[in-house]
């Protein structure tokens, strides 16, 4: 167990290092001169040189990389090239908003996908199962931002039940916060649910063929109870794997959905920074998104051990 933990931790650290090098190389080295990019082609050489020294861009790439990483690790990533404001507080603010979106959407997706996927598997030869399959196939084909626009059209424009966009921090006005949260979370969560449903279905179908489920029924468990007691935990292993990977999709989906619903999250920050050519901000936001994916996958890797006792021994 400890060995596995250490092993996975080493992989996580290595992944973080490699991906930070990729992001840094891509964002800070490739474009040439970030100061020139930030100030524009018409800026005087003197202004560019001044900015270069102010932000330490005249140092070697290695030194710049190390100071960037130090900034991230100490949670003090310095200030923006463009606006000159401190990056740290902005990132923290925006991250909080995006987390609300992503976490609730993931919960919604799981709450929908687990029962629906199970029913789809159990009834895979019946009309109801096939109908659910068709619906989920359709759901997979609709990107979250499109779902968002359609939901706005129906629930904000036609019915007027919910606000079309906006964001209110939960501390300011909890009721408004919830109202504004419904549509973005629904568009992210339902599309995610459609994807997950298919994985749950396939995992449960595999489990349904297992001998131990027949043993459970031979003991006298009715089929559905046998599946719930003996099947779902085993079906969880492949689903949890997908969950880690799907988080990447969900995060990037949130970036676009934030734009649809005018929500001041990491996605909006990323897109605004790209438009403003604020490369250091883009670099930081991308790194946070990638880091989130890697850390979640690390946690998922450890979750297996809790689900599947066979892994506890193989690590010994």
């Amino acid at each position: 167990m400890t060995l596995r933990l250490l092993q996975r931790l080493a992989i996580l650290v290595a992944s973080l290092v490699v991906s930070s090098v990729i992001v840094f190389a891509f964002m800070a080295v490739l474009p040439g001169d970030p100061a020139r990019v930030a100030l524009g082609v018409n800026a005087s050489d003197a202004a560019v040189a001044e900015m270069r020294s102010e932000f330490g861009l005249d140092r070697s790439p290695v030194a710049q990389y190390l100071s960037w990483v130090r900034g991230l690790v100490t949670l003090d990533p310095g200030s923006s090239y463009v606006s000159g404001t401190a990056i740290g507080p902005q990132l923290a603010d925006r991250l909080q908003v995006t987390l609300w979106l992503v976490v609730t959407a993931m919960v919604v997706a799981l709450v929908v996908a687990i029962p629906v996927g199970t029913v789809m598997a159990v009834r895979h030869r019946q009309v109801s199962g096939l109908a659910l399959s068709a619906v989920s196939q359709l759901g997979v084909a609709i990107p979250a931002f499109l779902a968002g626009i359609l939901l706005i059209t129906v629930f904000a424009v036609k019915l007027g039940w919910l606000p079309a966009n906006g964001w209110t921090p939960p501390a300011d006005d909890p009721a408004m916060f919830l109202k504004q949260l419904v549509l973005p979370v629904a568009s992210l969560g339902l599309v995610q649910a459609a994807v997950l449903t298919r994985y749950v279905r396939s995992a449960v179908l595999d489990v349904l063929r297992e001998d131990y489920l027949r043993t459970a029924r031979a003991k006298g468990l009715p089929p559905m109870r046998a599946l719930v007691r003996h099947g779902l935990r085993n079906a969880a292993v492949p689903v949890v794997t997908v969950l880690g990977l799907q988080l990447a999709t969900l995060l990037i989906g949130a970036v676009v959905v934030e734009r649809v619903f005018v929500i001041p999250g990491l996605g909006s920050l990323l897109l605004d920074s790209v438009s403003q050519r604020d490369l250091i901000m883009v670099q930081d936001v991308v790194m946070i998104l990638v880091m989130a994916v890697l850390v979640v996958n690390f946690v998922v890797d450890l979750l297996y051990v809790l689900i599947d006792p066979r892994l506890r021994v193989s690590a010994r």
Binding site: D211, Y212, T215, H230
Partner: peptide, 12 residues
């Protein structure tokens, strides 16, 4: 059953 290797639930 015939297959003892798969007849038991691996997670229980």
């Amino acid at each position: 059953f015939q297959e003892p290797m798969t007849a038991l639930n691996p997670t229980m």
